Amino acid sequence: MKFDSWSAFWAMGGYGFYVWLSFGLTLFALVALLVSTMATKKSLLRAVKQKQARAARRKAAQKLENTL
């Protein structure tokens, strides 16, 4: 598709509002998905670290209990 000017490109033959709105909403959804995924990853990593630390503390306590 060839446009004669930048204003014609932005107008998209009278459908520019809908075209650019759809691009904007899609971009917003993708960014929201990315942020959500990163937050979930951070939360899961924190939970795994806490679980590993708890297991290490339990193992150390059990080892100490066996030596007494």
Rank of each mutant, 00 (worst) to 15 (best):
K41Y: 07
V48A: 03
K42N: 06
G14Y: 02
Q52I: 09
A61D: 11
W20D: 01
A47G: 00
T67N: 05
A60Y: 01
L45Y: 06
F28L: 15
K59E: 12
F23D: 07
K63I: 07
W6A: 07
V48F: 01
Q50W: 04
S43V: 03
L25G: 02
V35C: 06
A32F: 09
K41C: 09
F28R: 04
R57I: 12
F9P: 12
V48L: 10
K63N: 08
R58F: 06
F23N: 11
A53K: 13
K63H: 07
W10Q: 13
R54L: 15
A60R: 13
K51M: 07
N66T: 11
T67D: 03
V35F: 02
W20T: 01
R57F: 08
Q52H: 07
S43R: 15
F17K: 15
V31W: 02
L21D: 10
Y15C: 11
Y15D: 15
K51V: 04
K41E: 02
Q50Y: 00
K2E: 14
Y18G: 06
R46T: 11
E65V: 00
T26Q: 04
G16T: 13
A47Q: 15
M12E: 13
S7W: 00
A32W: 01
V35L: 13
T37G: 03
G14K: 02
S36G: 05
K2S: 11
T26N: 14
R57W: 05
T67S: 14
F3P: 12
Q50S: 13
G14P: 13
T40P: 00
L33E: 07
L34H: 10
M1R: 11
W6Q: 05
K49L: 12
K42W: 01
Q52A: 08
F23Y: 13
W10R: 15
F3A: 09
G14D: 03
L45V: 05
F9V: 11
A39N: 00
F28V: 15
A32P: 06
L44W: 02
A53T: 12
R54I: 04
R54A: 13
R46D: 10
S7P: 01
E65H: 03
W20Q: 03
W20K: 07
G24P: 04
G13D: 05
L45W: 08
K2T: 13
G13C: 03
K51P: 01
N66P: 00
Q50L: 07
